[in-house]
Structure formats: structure tokens, C-alpha cells
Amino acid sequence: MTVVIAGPTGVGKSELAVRIAESADGEIVNFDSIQLYRRFDIGSAKPSPEVRARIPHHLFDVLDADQEFNAAEYARAARPIVDDIARRGKLPILVGGTFFYLRALLAGLPEMPARDAVLRTRLRKIVQPRLHRWLSRVDPQSGRSIAPGDRHRVERALEVWLISGRPISSWERPTNDAIAAVKIALSMDRQRLATILDERVEDMYRAGLIEETQSLLERYPESARPFSAIGYREAVAVIHGKMTTEEAMNETRRRTRAYAKRQMTWLRAERNVHWLDATDRDAAFAAALRLIEGES
């Protein structure tokens, strides 16, 4: 059995996953696309070294920022880890917020054209709003489901269309070899969550997000994918004098709230999801354990 802990950013997924792992002899497997990258710690809300020392954590700090990585590669990396955890008699607990990666792992991805470096270079020269308008014309379904600011997925969808002549949304997923999972999703009153998210943004800037970003820019090119992530893009703008810190914090708050809303929309469309109210963390933990024990 595999357990998924999902929900909008800031709702308490990581804390619940650690408590379950400690109680049910589990190990945590990350499906957050930014937490995969080394040194991108503050802006991704990566679990602290102390927390990761308590329970085995997998697929954190496994990539450098200038490495390309996509959902298919994530699934290929995560599947043997999940299988190995289960083979050792432990409970695999998938935790994160990049649900496209989660879907790739649990349900698989269609055999689509491989990445084309030359084509990607051409697409990178086009400004983001124009790229998304182009995608919306040639593949309306993907245009609706992919956020305008998610440049990596927009580029991939256009790349598949340009190479194959088919929208990425038309490719069929495999019907076998799926991973059965107990999917637990955390929810919270929207206004309460918004308050938590705003405080979280303030904490990140106070903890040194801009300084962390400055250090990362000395190692990696600004075009590296993680620099487009929420918080890092705004920190880069501050470093280049394009935003004040207050403007960056406000934009980070706005993007974080929008991201949480998209995550909830995605989860509500998923089937067989067990929803738990995260307001009372002890009650949510007890309910999650009952669900897991009921499936054992």
C-alpha cells in the first residue's frame, strides 16, 4: 500500500506525513518539483535537516538547478524508490504539491516525443504571455489546465505539438502498471489558509529568501527553472532592482494564494480522495491513521 498526502500549499502536509511515518513505520517520498533541487530551501519550504533526520526522506536535494527534469523523469526516479520501501515492509508516503508529478507516478504518462534541446532554446526566446496564448490556440484544453506562469509545462506542451502535430492533451495514458494508493487530502477554511500563507511568505523573506537567491544566482544561470518558482522569481526581481522588497512580498503572496487555489481545483477533480479538515491537526492525524489502517 502507498499513501498520498496532498492539499494546498501551507495546509500542513509535511507535518502530517512525518507523524504518520513515525506511527506507521513509513518513509517519505517527495513530489514537490522545487524541493528536488539542492540549495533551494527557504522558498520551497523544504523540511529542515532535523526533521529529515527523524524519518527517511527521499527525492530531496537530488538535482542541480541547471538540470532539466520533467514529470516522466520524476516517475522513473520515484517508482523504484516506492517499490523498494514497500519491499522492505515499510509504508511509502508520497508528499508534495506538484500534482502533475504525482499523476505521472501513480498513473503513468503516455509515450510522447522526447525533449528537443534546439526547439526548447527557440521557445525560450518567446515571452511567456505570448507562449501561453499560442498554446491556448493550438491546444485549448492544455491552455486551460496549465497556468500562464508555468513556463516549463507551457514549453513542453508546445514542444510536443510542434514535433508530433498532436496536442499534448490528446495522448492516452497507459492503462496498466498503476500504483494503488490511499489518497488523503487536507483542506482548511479559505480565509484561515490565506492568513497562514501570508504569514508564511513573511517568514520566508525574514528567514533570508533574498539572500539565498543571491547566493544561488552566483552558482546557476537565471534561466534555470527553479528561479521561476514562487518567491524566487520575486527575489530575483529585488536583486535586479525591478521590485522593492515590499512589492516582492505582495506579489509572492498573490502567486501563493493563486497556486493554492489551483491545487484545490486539481484535487477536487481527482477521484477516490479522502478529505480531512486540517484545522485540528490532531484530529486529522487520527483520521488519517484510521483510513490507513482500514486499507491495510
Rank of each mutant, 00 (worst) to 15 (best):
E73V: 04
H152K: 13
D203S: 09
L186T: 02
G96A: 14
G7R: 04
A53K: 03
P140G: 09
E246V: 11
W161M: 12
G43I: 00
P129H: 09
R130G: 09
A283G: 09
R255I: 08
I34C: 09
P110S: 11
L59W: 02
R153P: 03
L216W: 03
A114F: 14
L276E: 02
I179V: 11
D277R: 11
N272H: 12
E293N: 10
L216N: 01
P8T: 00
R192Q: 14
G89C: 05
R255K: 10
E222W: 06
R219L: 05
E218N: 08
R115D: 15
A107M: 14
Y74L: 08
L276Q: 05
L36D: 00
R38S: 07
S215M: 07
P221I: 03
L109F: 13
W275F: 11
I81L: 06
S48I: 05
D177H: 15
I146A: 07
I292P: 04
R54Y: 08
I93Q: 04
E251D: 14
L162W: 10
H132A: 07
E218P: 03
D83H: 03
D84E: 07
L106D: 01
P56M: 09
A21S: 15
E246G: 07
R225F: 08
I93D: 03
S228M: 11
Y37D: 01
I85Y: 00
I179E: 00
E295S: 12
L105R: 06
D116K: 05
I196P: 06
L131S: 04
T9D: 06
G294D: 06
G10F: 04
D41M: 01
E27F: 13
A224Q: 00
A278F: 12
L135C: 08
A77D: 04
A75C: 03
L193S: 11
H240I: 02
G294K: 06
A284M: 13
R88N: 09
K183R: 15
A53Q: 07
D282F: 13
D280E: 08
R156H: 00
N272Q: 15
H152L: 05
I210T: 13
L217E: 00
V154F: 01
V160E: 01
L162M: 08
A75L: 02
R54E: 09
R115M: 15
G241E: 04
N176K: 13
A17E: 04
R103T: 12
T195I: 15
E27W: 15
P110N: 10
E247V: 06
S228H: 13
V182F: 09
D41Y: 07
T245R: 14
D116R: 07
G241S: 06
P140W: 14
M204W: 10
E246H: 13
P49R: 12
A181M: 07
L16Y: 12
E50P: 04
A284N: 06
R254C: 09
R137G: 08
R190S: 15
R290P: 02
L158Y: 03
R19Q: 10
D25Y: 13
A53R: 11
L186F: 13
S136L: 08
P47N: 05
R103P: 06
R255P: 02
S48W: 11
S187C: 13
S164M: 06
R87P: 02
